[in-house]
Amino acid sequence: MKWAVIVFPGSNCDHDCYYILKDVLGQDVCYKWHKDTSLSGIDCVVLPGGFSYGDYLRCGAIARFSPIMNEVIKFANNGGIVIGICNGFQILLEAGLLPGAMLRNESLRFICKDVYLSIENRETIFTRCVKTERVLRMPIAHAEGNYFVDSETLSNLQKNNQIVFRYCRPERDERDERDVVSFTYTDNPNGSIDSIAGICNKNGNVLGMMPHPERAAEQILGGVDGKLIFESVIRQ
């Protein structure tokens, strides 16, 4: 597979995504500068986290107008695989590739910590490598991750199985737990509606998620659950 990591001015997880794809997963990957205007030959596009344009105006609101975004929209509409992580998710919302908007975290603070995710849809191309009954642990790091949609859109998301990840709390909170079965939706770090941590579009080829899978893809960093997301895509 050929991957492209888009670099906006102010992206700062571009390098981390590139490293995981290339050095940990052995993928063919390139950077695409936001002023580039072609995605030819690319199979999967990653919009990385960071502070594109300093998050000035509104997270993702300016990056959405970068020249490359016209291509990303075309690419997505043609069925190309797109993953937006954190700021990348925010850009996808601003670009209209995914529904909804981000509010500031309920605490009004930036939050950086590990969270647990339940997989709400195991059929997507982003989650099919996740064994059933697993919850995933990976970090969040954002100030505006409080996902919001109106009730009609929310019920559409639910109906169409577009909710991919929800924040959750495993019943047993032990060290190195691997295969937790039961959990509740009581740990919502940012106030997201319906505890939503990640969604996909109706066609299932565009994923937006606030947690950082690229930060949980090496044992030395404390976990490898994030790797499953990329591996799911690779396995197609």
Binding site: Y19, F110, C112, L221
Partner: peptide
């Protein structure tokens, strides 16, 4: 306090 700081970006923090 430290949860307000991104302490993991660059994926080097062990």
């Amino acid at each position: 306090i430290y949860e307000q700081y991104d302490h993991m970006v660059r994926t080097n923090t062990i």
